[in-house]
Structures are given as C-alpha cells and as structure tokens.
Design a protein around this nucleic acid. Sequence first.
DNA 1: TAGTGGTCTAGACCACCAA
DNA 2: TGGTGGTCTAGACCACTAG
Lengths: 256, 256
Amino acid sequence: MGTTQLDTVPEPKYWHLKTVLAEALDSEFAVGEILPNERELAARFGVARATLRQALEQLELEGRLQRRRGVGTTVAPPRVGVSVGSVQQGRPGATDGDWEVADSAPAVPPAAVARLLGTEAGEPVHIVRRSRVTGGQPVAAELLYVPPASVPALPAADAPAGPPGARAVLAELGNLGLDGEDQAVELGSARADEAKQLDRLPGAPVLVVTTRYFTRGRTAAVAVATYRADTCRLTFGDSGTVELAHETRDAGASRV
Amino acid sequence: MGTTQLDTVPEPKYWHLKTVLAEALDSEFAVGEILPNERELAARFGVARATLRQALEQLELEGRLQRRRGVGTTVAPPRVGVSVGSVQQGRPGATDGDWEVADSAPAVPPAAVARLLGTEAGEPVHIVRRSRVTGGQPVAAELLYVPPASVPALPAADAPAGPPGARAVLAELGNLGLDGEDQAVELGSARADEAKQLDRLPGAPVLVVTTRYFTRGRTAAVAVATYRADTCRLTFGDSGTVELAHETRDAGASRV
DNA sequence: TAGTGGTCTAGACCACCAA
DNA sequence: TGGTGGTCTAGACCACTAG
C-alpha cells in the first residue's frame, strides 16, 4: 500500500468541541454570562446532545462553566484560592475567617478514622460539623473527629450538643495547644449530605483534605474536609500563591 | 389524593448502581481482579450500557476501578500517597527519590507563569520536563520554569539541551539555595501530551500542583506538576498521613 | 481476529427553577 | 407553565489489546 498512513489520530468530537468552546469562553463571553441551552448548542455544532454534554462536563470539571438545573449554563468566575495549610486558620480561635460551626455530637467514627486517632474501634468521639464559606458561597464541608481523651475537660458521653457544644470542643482543642499538622489531598465525589451543603448534586467532584492535628507527638484530632473541586484552588504555605488559574497550563509554551 | 407523597427522592439508577458495585468490590473482589465486561454487567443489572458506564466512571474517579481499552475493567489498588510538600524532595540533589529528568529547553512560558516569575511577557526561560514514577507507575508530569536570572552560571540562550542540560539547571538551582515554597492544588484534566506521559486518555482527571520556589524573598522558579487523580493521594507535611483512603469518608459514622 | 472499553446518535422522560 | 439541565435507553461504530 502506497498510502503511508500518517499519524492522524482522529480527535474525538467532544474533545474538539471542548477546545472550541474554551476559546469562545475566553474571547466572547463574560463571567456570569449565560450560554445558549444544550439543545441549541448541540444543533449549532451539529452533534448529539450527549456529545455536547460531554464537552460541557469537562469544562465544568475544569472550573470554566457552572451548570444549574432549571436555570442554565453560565461562565464561571476564576477559582477562588482557599488556604488549607500552615497558616493559623483551621484552628479554634473564635471567628477564624470563614468557618461556620454547625453542630457537635458524639458518634462512632469510620474505622479508618479511628485507626488514625488511635482509638478503639467502636469507641465514640466528638464529631464537629463545620462548613466553610467564601464570598457568600459554600466551599467546603468538614467533619472534625476529636477523641474524648483530647478534651478531658468536657464530659465524654454527655457533652453539650449543637453549636455551643461544637464551640466548646473547639475551644478545648485550642487550649490543648496543637503543635503540628499533616495533610493529604485526594479526589472524591460528593456524598448526598455533602452535596446538599455544597449546593451541588451528589457525585460532584470534590477535593478531600484529611488533616491530622498533633499535640506532643500524638494525634489529637482528625479533620476530613471536602472542598468543591469546581470552584476551589487549595493553597498551602504562607503566601498563598495568589492569582493564577488554568492559564498556567495553557498552550503557548511553544517549546523550541 | 390520599397518598401523602413521602419525600421519596428517586435516586438515580447509576447512583444506586455505583453503591451496589462499591459494596461488591469491597466484599467479592480482590485488587487487580478483572470485572465482567460492560455489556455483561449492564445486562446483569438490567440497565443500558451508558447507565452502567456512568456508575463505572464515578468509581474510577474515586480510584476504585481502573479501565483500559482493549483490556477490561480491573479493581484498583488503594491510592498511593505521594509527598509534595515541605520535605526536601522536589529539589535538585541528585537521585532524589522518584523524579526522572526528561529534558530541558528554552521557551516562552504561558503568560500566567511569566507573571508569577516576574519575567517580561515573551521572555524565554529554561523549561525542564520531569516525570515522577512510583512503584513502576508514572504518577506525575512536571514542567519546571526557571528564568535565566535564577541560574546566572548557565548561558541564557545556549544552555545544554536534553537530560544533561536539565540536570545542569537543577544543579544550579540547588546552588542558589531555595528558602521557601508555596503551593496550590486544583483539579484539571490531562492534556494530550500529559495523558501520554501518565498512561491515561486525554481528559483524564488530574491534580495540578503549582509550586513557587523562593530565594531571598524572590520567586526563583515555578513548577506545574500534574498528578494522576485516580491513583494518587497528595501528602503535605513531614509525617505523610500514611494509609487511609476513601474509607475515611465511608458511612458508619452513624451520628447519634 | 475476537473482545474490550471509548465515542456517538436520536430519541424520551424527569426534576427543578423562574416567571 | 415553559424552559433548563439531569437521567436513561437501545442501538451503532471505532480504537485498542491480546492471543
């Protein structure tokens, strides 16, 4: 065969579509602007709606679009940087930035958490629920697991419940003097309860941040926080790597 | 109508399916085991293949499954923890763990990177490509941007190319003495070139880690690393939050 | 070459929101 | 109530891998 099959990998339609749409977003749309609806867009590009949706899903995953049922698809603002490390912030100290205490109750933690805490399986701990709000938008839901041993001043089984109880646990934890932490980040999908708090649908992509708080070398508490992956950029370190987005990974590097 | 419509939110099929499959994975399958094919599974559960795929996609996103075209769907091992912060590791110093230098070349960085570096737009910098391998599997692809000003010992326009050149840049950067860093993590999707390095399809979910290296208060270099989101758990801090996975977020908390 | 997952279509109906 | 995105179906064909 004389036809030297050149390396023409047929690019999937949705991939090409995504590229075209991304360029259009950069040049022809303003943040918050509402796009034509999916049926309209699909027709305009001559593809099935499912294919169009595949492209939109990717763009939403990358934080470029926001879709809401019954409303429409809008151009998303750049991701907000939320500080999750080093800086004195997740700690107690009243009114620390943008955490909102929800409530507290004793319960048996998942086995993996108990392992991290070094508590007996089946042993109940204080579970404090908090949500984090930035710019009026909910960005994270957190469960903070505090073994009774870490807050001896509080009655183990009969701690005050609700927001006051939660604040009491946090205050006690602060008195303890935390001297270190340890974090891990991984991708997950929102459970039903988390989704509701984050104003997303179940299954939405989230960044799960697991933090271990230390005091005198021992694990004093464990926090599992789930951040909206579409709207958040997690920052570690003091200065906070302000401003920068998907653009850092754009083309234009044009290697020589 | 006497039927008081109780708050029965009809759970989507794919969601329920995902739950069922997740339980089956925990109880009936071993890591690496291969699942029945999609058509078979769809038939077995009495759903369309697309619906079944929606469930599989979520499980893959959560790192529970691994799917490979032409091969099949297998049960994924737990995510590997990869250290990305604090510890002296991304830095030069020969043979530092699991980074593999690919090459180096001068090129004009994306505008957002130039802004971080504080270089003129259009000014070329050294771009070092590295990949990170853990347990024989590629986990990350990195582009390290180093302005000529940070490595004055190297010829700006005519630096050695290829792996030797890359190592030269890294060595010079090490001599400089970095005294701080600054990181951000966000969700992205793999570009075509990254996908190839990571042995995934384009569009695969990745965790993008942007690191700013400081020396004497100035930004000496910027690294943009993309980690496979399906197989990696990024760890920050010294001890590394060993061992723990999706389990930390499982049910069983059973609030009181 | 047979079997896998990946892409794509053209429909349908449903849940949600705003007017 | 009309319009939006979300779910679901039952097909088809393609790209890739392995034997």
